[in-house]
Computed example of a mutant assay.
Amino acid sequence: MLATALGVTIHAVDSHQPFLGELRRRAEDAGVGSRIQAHCMEMSDIPAVFSSIDLLWSEGAAYNIGFADALARWAPALRSGGFVVVSELAWLSEAAPAAARDFFRAGYPDMKLTTENIRLAQEAGYRMLGTHNLPRAAWIDDYYEVLEPRATTLASHQDAGVRALAQETLKEIEIFETAGGSYGYVFYLLQRS
C-alpha cells in the first residue's frame, strides 16, 4: 500500500522470512515489486542498516524490544523531522477488569496506558502528532473469528504444547470479549525532532 501510494522504494523488515516472501508475492501482484526491498533482520538492528529513514512504520513489532526501547533504538536511523507510526498494545482505561490485568501481567507485563506511552515517546525526543485506536472489529473480523474455531479444534490435540497454545488463545479471546474495551492496539504518529 505504501509503495503504491508514495511511489518510492520501501524497505520492508521482518525477522520471519516467510512473511517477507508473502510480501514479495503481493507486491509483484500489485505491480510494485520493484519498489519493495525485503530485509530479514531484527527490528532492533534497523540503525545498523539504515541511517536516514523518512517514515518508519511498525505494526505490532515494537513490543519485541519494548515500546520505549524501540523508539530510542530507532531514533538514530531517522532523519531530522522523520516520522514514526508505531502500534502498541495499551490499556485504554485504568478500570480494566482484574481478569484482563492478570492475563496481560503474565503475557505482556510491560503494557502501559496510552497516556504513559505518549509520555515515553516525548521523553525519547518525539513530537506526538496523534493517536488512533484500532477498532474492535479489527480484532474480530478475519482474526478472532478465524482463530477461535481453529483453537477450539486444537484444544484437544495429542501434543501438550499445541493444546497449551490453543487454550491460551481461547483464554485471550475470552478476556477480549469480557474486557469491555479496556485495552487495544493504539497507533502513535510521531515526529523526530
Rank of each mutant, 00 (worst) to 15 (best):
D69F: 13
L20V: 05
D110K: 07
P135H: 06
V84L: 01
I175S: 10
T169G: 03
D159I: 02
E168F: 00
K171H: 12
H16T: 15
A5M: 11
R35A: 10
F19P: 04
A166M: 07
W74H: 02
D159R: 02
E177G: 14
A155R: 02
G66T: 04
L170K: 04
G60R: 03
E59M: 04
G181R: 13
L113K: 14
L92D: 06
G66P: 04
H39F: 13
T178P: 09
A27K: 04
E168P: 06
G82K: 02
E22V: 06
A160T: 05
R119A: 15
I46E: 07
G107I: 12
P97M: 09
E172P: 06
K112C: 07
F103W: 14
Y126C: 02
A30M: 12
R24Y: 08
E174F: 01
E22H: 06
R35F: 02
M128F: 09
Q37T: 12
T4W: 14
A179G: 11
G107D: 08
S15V: 10
A100T: 07
S80W: 07
F176D: 14
V8M: 07
P109C: 05
A155P: 09
A72W: 00
A124D: 03
M43S: 14
P97A: 09
G81F: 02
P97V: 07
T178V: 08
A151I: 06
G125A: 01
